[in-house]
């Protein structure tokens, strides 16, 4: 088996079994806010990342951040800093940590934690206003976090 073929086979296996190596929200190891390891072991897809970042019901990052690189996305908010060039300011581990739980990097920040399931005051059942009926799920899945990070690392100055 050639080396290339082996890599393709490994990648295919990883894609088919995403849950095996997935790190749960409560098991994430942060080092000074950073997450060094992938949450899934499956490389993120930057195209899927853009979809997460610009879809209201998913990450909706553009609600608060301008992404000049996505000029077709209307009504980009300005609560947080623009994301253009963000990969020149933070490395991948920092970006993963900020997306998963930015409060461990920026104390008291407005930014929600997208991969966190406990420690909330009166959490609800998504946007229904009602109490949750089962355990909370994170706002984004582990793979969606990886997809967002995969796009963010392309935003170099």
């Amino acid at each position: 088996m050639t080396r290339q073929l082996m890599l393709v086979t490994l990648a295919a296996m990883a894609a088919a079994t995403p849950a095996i190596s997935e790190i749960a929200p409560t098991a994430v190891a942060y080092t000074e806010g950073k997450i060094s390891e992938s949450l899934t072991g499956t490389p993120g897809d930057p195209v899927a990342g853009v979809k997460v970042m610009t879809t209201n019901a998913l990450g909706n990052c553009v609600a608060c951040h301008v992404i000049g690189a996505l000029p077709d996305v209307p009504f980009q908010g300005n609560i947080g800093p623009a994301l253009d060039g963000v990969a020149s300011r933070y490395d991948e581990a920092q970006l993963r940590g900020i997306v998963a739980n930015s409060k461990l990097t920026f104390e008291g920040t407005f930014m929600p934690a997208f991969y966190k399931t406990d420690g909330f005051v009166r959490p609800g059942n998504a946007y229904t206003g009602k109490a949750p009926e089962s355990e909370l799920t994170p706002i984004l899945t582990a793979q969606q976090i990886e997809d967002v990070v995969a796009y963010l690392v392309t935003l170099k100055e």
Binding site: V66, N78, P81, A82
Partner: peptide, 14 residues
């Protein structure tokens, strides 16, 4: 200012 400049540069509705 940076944010505004970015919005202006990319012709955003905001």
């Amino acid at each position: 200012i940076k944010t505004l400049a970015a919005s202006a540069a990319f012709g955003l509705a905001l």
